[in-house]
Design a protein around this nucleic acid. Structure first.
Lengths: 232, 232, 232, 232
DNA sequence: AATGAATGAGGATTCATTCAT
DNA sequence: TATGAATGAATCCTCATTCAT
């Protein structure tokens, strides 16, 4: 047996008091659900979706593997819920920033606001990038429905705020803009964070065109998009 | 062997004469390589990357499984080469169209040209969408280098044509525009072609916001992007 | 909990008033035990033993999963008890029929009587078929003792009735005949109700020899057996 | 880690020279297939179907687990093939005995012949007993077809021999008799070889009625059946 | 070069049973 | 007694890749 077989101790779990009590109340159950998501989130930030196993997440959460399946039907649904949580977190952040923005806002200011919100959320953009290809593939209709409904609500809400900040947007265009920005984030995430072998290849000077700077491109394209909308 | 272990014959292979002879000459080797790519491409259009096995591709190509690995180090490299081929094909198509475009071209005309080129290449956009997450993940530095170099060349060439067609683009901006459009294609592909369960969910009227029309959104955003560049 | 984790309500339970009160009295306990068996029986008739979960049975019985284990040590013991109940039911039916039989009875009449009793009890014969391989495998000595003792009593009683109806049976041979018929039922049940794939295969004309008609074969063999005993 | 975790070395594999060579020829492949069946058979005789894992069988056969699936699509198909082999073996034995039987034969002689053939084949009767409930449940239509066709052929052949030995059997009745005997074997196997807990319970004198003697009952019922047929 | 038999790592998931409340 | 959250054992099978022939 090789050394690699020994389970390396998990550093990330900062020895929380083992919360073995049973979650009988609704509140406790939600709390535990959150604890699982929190553990998954911790691990996801140092690992990739594929490399993370339910076993590892259970250990991090100090729970038995089977317990995870009490709260999430599949691994994908767990990460779908995690994505929703991070999405909500992102919307919250953006909403807060929008609230203190001068109205009418400059497209450039808005773009900076959004770029900044993404800059500090690399885990979030990684989740978005695998949402359609991995997470939604093995999730139940029910879980997806919850996800999309919540997402819709947040898109509409933040969309409305965008419409207030940018007078050239008419009703409904805020939400659509958010969808377009989502596409942008996904695409740029793929290009800006390639596999190690790719990184190595494009470190050659001649190929530096391929070194996509997420932040820079996002601001660039988003600004063009907004100005395009403005100048209609 | 007696039992029913034999997979039913594959309908897609239109009974090419079994080309079992050895490919000794360089030309023959390239030919066989192309045959493999062609088989993979045929199957990919009726299937998904995950569902396609090397075994199936080999059978379609009338070759043994092991032979595939003489031409491509991994499954990913095979599809990387396939992506390059389709990318080249797309560039060729676009270049041809650009050649007959009036100069200076309207951004709108250009966008229509590009949208049309993508509209008839759904397999190609699906490949782009998994390029970073799947194909480049298990490819060798060598294969990626070849891929990126060829891609660079084509991007520069077509980029230059774009710069000629759109005078507001300065040197180098054509290639960069292509990269940005690539991000757009990837993101929209993810949103426009979700998993079946998602399709079911968003067929509910209230959630139709999520029914992303690739063509429409591509034209929309690409046009805004171009106009944004124009109006600088 | 928000998400769609709740199983859709079970249609089979015809909305009995939820009897959640505690069963303190012995009578109440027996009543609840019967309720559980009744629920299991309802479900078993539309499902298979493997497909039935303790959770489903509990829900059908309007009880918590854990409560089932207060009444039955294992899933197997639950079904063992169910088998006993159905066995008793079958013996009752046969006894009744035997009571109105002319004595001495024709072997043929008796066989018809038995065949008819089985014809309307397909759930019962399915239970018999898994008794030894599934149910008795994970049952406690205590539960098996109860089962066998009760079974013995009923076999002796009905055996005696058989001996009265069929004068050529000497003392003790009635019970033994019942055991032999049990073996017959088990074997024929296996052959007559094969897996779907087998049914498909033997629907081919050439293989129709394998389409075993339970009723026909039971009558055939049982009659031969009785006549064999008669002609000694 | 407890001691039970250590893989106990397998005694049954009598250190055959590791046959690692690749089976390229059809003959070699059949040989290897036989080797796998042989390993499974060895292990099955000291274990139960459920307790046997594909992993264990692979080890016994000195092959990788995956290799097993090259020869058999599922664990069930492997055992289905094993059952066919043992069935063939049994038919061969019976045919040989029938060949030296005086014609016309006494039903009693024939029954003794059959009983003797089963007496020395306890593994075979155990396989028959799980054929319908386990093996045929997860086998492909193809595998079942092969199984049933071969079985049909053997039943017809041996059935014909029976018809020659027992003149009171008309054409086709030999095969049907074999089917009836199969049902008998299955049922008696279940009753005669119960779970350990059952054996313990029925060792109590009062319950010795349940101690079914396979051989005795088989001869008893089979004889009655034959005589019943004779005296028609 | 071509073949195709052999390899073996790898992980989600179910569900009977337990036990804290 | 009743509950239902928590447990965790247990294993089949796929398929890219290798390598003997």
């Amino acid at each position: 047996m090789t050394a690699g077989h020994l389970k390396s101790s998990y550093m990330t779990n900062s020895q929380q008091s083992p919360l073995r009590k049973r979650a009988r109340q609704q509140g406790q159950k939600l709390e535990r659900r959150e604890a699982i998501l929190s553990s998954a989130w911790n691990l996801f930030q140092q690992s990739s979706y594929e490399a993370l196993t339910m076993d590892t997440i259970a250990r991090e959460a100090q729970l038995a593997k089977g317990t995870l399946f009490l709260y999430f039907r599949t691994k994908e649904e767990l990460f779908l819920a995690l994505t929703l949580k991070q999405l909500t977190n992102w919307f919250d952040g953006v909403d807060q920033q929008l609230a203190v923005l001068l109205v009418p806002a400059e497209p450039a200011s808005l773009v900076e606001l959004l770029a900044a919100s993404l800059r500090e959320r690399s885990g979030f953009t990684r989740l978005l990038a695998i949402l359609a290809t991995a997470l939604e593939q093995n999730s139940s209709v029910e879980a997806i429905l919850v996800f999309k409904q919540e997402l819709l609500e947040r898109m509409l809400r933040t969309g409305k705020l965008l419409e207030q900040a940018l007078p050239f947007l008419s009703a409904g265009e805020g939400a659509r803009l958010l969808m377009q920005l989502q596409a942008l984030v996904i695409g740029l995430q793929h290009l800006a964070h390639p596999a190690p072998a790719v990184q190595q290849v494009i470190s050659v000077p001649a190929l530096q065109v391929f070194q996509v700077d997420f932040d820079r491109e996002f601001r660039n394209i988003a600004l063009a998009l907004l100005k395009g909308l403005e100048k209609r």
